Amino acid sequence: PDFTLHWNGITIHFKGIDEEQFRHLRELLDRGVSLEELEELAKELIK
């Protein structure tokens, strides 16, 4: 499924991740993950 997340004025689209992965990403963003960390995470998910 696809998810869209609005965070700090940025709209991020996640394609092909499951709800569990999306929930994990939201928790990280709510905790204050940096954009660099988010990019690293995205690379991991894409593999």
Results as ranks from 00 to 15, higher is better:
22 F>D: 01
42 A>Q: 04
38 L>G: 00
5 L>G: 01
47 K>T: 15
4 T>W: 10
40 E>G: 03
45 L>C: 07
40 E>T: 06
9 G>F: 03
34 S>R: 04
1 P>K: 14
39 E>L: 13
24 H>P: 05
1 P>L: 14
43 K>P: 03
27 E>L: 09
20 E>Y: 13
20 E>A: 13
2 D>I: 14
16 G>T: 03
39 E>M: 15
41 L>K: 05
11 T>F: 07
26 R>L: 15
37 E>M: 08
41 L>P: 00
8 N>R: 02
45 L>K: 01
28 L>E: 07
11 T>I: 10
29 L>H: 07
35 L>F: 09
21 Q>N: 08
28 L>T: 05
25 L>D: 00
40 E>Q: 06
35 L>N: 04
10 I>G: 06
8 N>M: 07
4 T>C: 02
47 K>E: 15
33 V>T: 12
42 A>N: 01
42 A>F: 15
25 L>A: 01
28 L>Y: 07
38 L>I: 15
26 R>W: 09
39 E>T: 09
32 G>F: 08
2 D>K: 11
10 I>F: 06
27 E>R: 07
26 R>S: 12
34 S>Y: 03
16 G>F: 08
40 E>N: 06
31 R>G: 10
20 E>L: 10
3 F>S: 01
21 Q>H: 07
8 N>E: 11
31 R>T: 13
30 D>Q: 10
37 E>W: 06
44 E>R: 01
32 G>H: 05
7 W>K: 12
28 L>I: 09
43 K>W: 08
2 D>S: 14
45 L>A: 07
46 I>M: 09
30 D>L: 12
7 W>Q: 10
47 K>R: 06
19 E>D: 14
42 A>S: 03
11 T>V: 11
46 I>Q: 07
8 N>D: 10
22 F>A: 08
42 A>D: 01
1 P>Q: 14
16 G>E: 09
45 L>G: 01
9 G>N: 06
41 L>C: 01
31 R>C: 02
7 W>T: 05
7 W>L: 13
12 I>H: 04
42 A>R: 04
43 K>T: 10
9 G>T: 02
7 W>S: 12
29 L>P: 00
40 E>P: 00
20 E>W: 09
40 E>D: 09
13 H>Q: 14
4 T>D: 06
3 F>W: 10
28 L>G: 03
39 E>Y: 13
37 E>N: 04
4 T>I: 12
5 L>T: 02
23 R>A: 11
34 S>I: 04
22 F>K: 06
24 H>S: 11
24 H>Q: 15
15 K>S: 15
21 Q>M: 13
26 R>D: 01
5 L>V: 08
27 E>N: 12
26 R>Q: 13
8 N>P: 02
31 R>H: 10
45 L>S: 06
24 H>W: 11
44 E>C: 02
33 V>C: 03
37 E>V: 08
46 I>L: 14
16 G>I: 05
25 L>S: 00
45 L>P: 03
34 S>H: 04
24 H>T: 15
2 D>M: 14
28 L>P: 00
16 G>P: 04
14 F>D: 00
47 K>Y: 14
15 K>T: 15
22 F>S: 04
32 G>L: 07
14 F>Q: 00
21 Q>R: 03
42 A>W: 15
20 E>R: 10
6 H>Y: 09
6 H>P: 01
11 T>W: 06
20 E>F: 12
16 G>K: 03
21 Q>G: 13
27 E>S: 11
13 H>I: 14
16 G>N: 08
17 I>T: 02
33 V>F: 10
21 Q>V: 14
44 E>F: 02
45 L>Q: 04
37 E>P: 00
47 K>A: 15
18 D>S: 15
34 S>W: 04
40 E>R: 08
14 F>G: 01
21 Q>Y: 04
17 I>V: 06
5 L>N: 00
45 L>E: 03
36 E>P: 06
22 F>W: 10
5 L>P: 00
44 E>I: 03
33 V>A: 14
35 L>G: 02
40 E>S: 06
5 L>Y: 04
17 I>K: 01
